[in-house]
Design a protein around this nucleic acid. Structure first.
Length: 255
DNA sequence: AAGGCGCGCAACCGCTTGTTT
DNA sequence: AAAACAAGCGGTTGCGCGCCT
């Protein structure tokens, strides 16, 4: 059975990319588009693993990348998305046009973590660190790694969304229209560097049941596109309820 | 001026998931 | 159905650079 291995590691370069390698990669992708990464190095005359080429292109050479410092608004968006998604850097990056998962991951580890700690917020749980002014008790079994956002019942939801006195640090003002439409045609082969992926524009329709109150519930799995556009089965599976996140609809918002 | 140290970024590694044979 | 593979993802590492002593 089989295919040949991805690359012959003995004959591939490692480490920092040279300008010449960059130019070869750019020229090849401009001419042929992002095709098969496995065959690309050979076709482009690069002594690199396809994986390495892909990474270089995705994280550094893509023309639509936004280089430079992160704006405060971007920081806040990352924080909010991380509180929902955890270390799903690619999903977070999908909401920040021009930013890569690697860049966001690095930025998180070097800047935002510290920022949150200085605010008295645990960067993993997004809850106040013990001893801070919020002093939210932790459950004994709370893991130190990322914890899924709490599942709010509708009653809790209404309470927390209407009250300003809630000590819940969860996303007080985030309009989480995180819907990811069925993969839109990527601009990657268009050759146009001015094309920008527009985030947060999904408008897919979650079909509610006939019960109007049900329409207030959005399954995060579904809304993030985890279900490939199909209704989420976790509605019927209590075991994975932790993946569900409910939020109230904004006024005038439709499902 | 020089050495040490810490930070930030780019790249690698290993694992997971989806696809192909 | 199972194995092999490609692509993608997240964690980790290594190196260059700037700052501090």
């Amino acid at each position: 059975m089989g295919r040949s291995p991805c690359c012959e590691k003995a004959h591939t370069n490692k480490g920092a990319w040279t300008k010449e390698e960059d130019q070869r990669l750019i020229a090849y992708i401009k001419a042929h588009g992002e095709g098969c990464w496995r065959s690309l190095p050979k076709a482009a005359g690069l002594l690199r693993c396809g994986k390495s080429c892909r990474l270089r292109w995705m994280n550094y050479l893509r023309p639509d990348l936004k280089r430079g410092n992160f704006a405060d608004e971007e920081d806040e968006l990352i924080i909010k998305l991380h509180s929902l998604l955890g270390n799903k850097w690619s999903l977070i990056a999908g909401q920040l046009p021009g930013r890569t998962d690697n860049e966001i991951k690095n930025h998180w580890n070097t800047h935002i973590k510290r920022k949150l700690i200085s605010r008295g917020v645990d960067p993993q749980t997004h809850r106040p660190i013990n001893g801070s002014q919020f002093n939210t008790p932790k459950t004994p079994d709370q893991p130190t790694s990322y914890k899924a956002p709490p599942v709010l019942s509708q009653a809790e939801d209404q309470h927390s969304s209407s009250g300003t006195t809630s000590d819940e640090p969860w996303l007080p003002d985030l309009n989480l229209d995180l819907s990811i439409s069925p993969p839109t045609p990527s601009p990657k082969t268009s050759g146009s560097s001015s094309e920008v992926v527009t985030p947060l524009v999904g408008s897919e329709v979650v079909t509610p049941t006939s019960n109007p109150s049900y329409a207030r519930v959005i399954c995060l799995c579904y809304h993030l596109g985890f279900r490939g556009g199909e209704p989420c089965s976790c509605q019927a599976n209590p075991d994975i309820q932790g993946l569900r996140y409910y939020r109230p609809l904004e006024e005038g918002q439709h499902l």
